[in-house]
């Protein structure tokens, strides 16, 4: 019984992660310029990967596998934004101008 509940829960998380990854990809295609696309990448990095990892942890149960997945999650919270920041910084240094909304709010 408990196993079934955990299994269903973990599949919900995995599918949720997959949906967010898909949304991130759609965003990367729809957004107008480089900098806005980075926001779509952020979605994949945080919710997409995060939910997939949580789903896998539920599959792993109380074992070293779960601990390793937790470590992965922890490290991704450091490397993900650093990589995005590095991309943005590199684009700034090569003088890529961001598209800015000029309309009055």
């Amino acid at each position: 019984m408990m196993d079934t509940v955990l299994d269903v829960l973990s599949w919900i998380f995995l599918l949720g992660g997959a949906i967010f990854l898909l949304v991130g990809a759609i965003g990367a295609l729809r957004f107008p310029d480089f900098y806005t696309r980075l926001h779509a990448v952020s979605v994949c990095d945080t919710m997409g990967a995060g939910l997939v990892l949580v789903g896998l942890m539920l599959q792993g149960g109380l074992s070293l596998v779960t601990v390793k997945l937790l470590l992965m999650f922890y490290f991704m919270m450091f490397t993900g934004p650093t990589a995005v920041h590095a991309l943005a910084e590199a684009a700034m240094q090569s003088k890529l101008k961001p598209v800015v909304d000029e309309r009055e709010p």
Binding site: Y35, L38, H39, S42, V43, D45, T46, M47, M77, G80, P81, T82, V84, H85, A88, E89, A91, M92
Partner: peptide, 11 residues
Amino acid sequence: ITLVPGTVTMD
């Protein structure tokens, strides 16, 4: 700031 989608630190 970068981790929260919607804002990215550029510099």
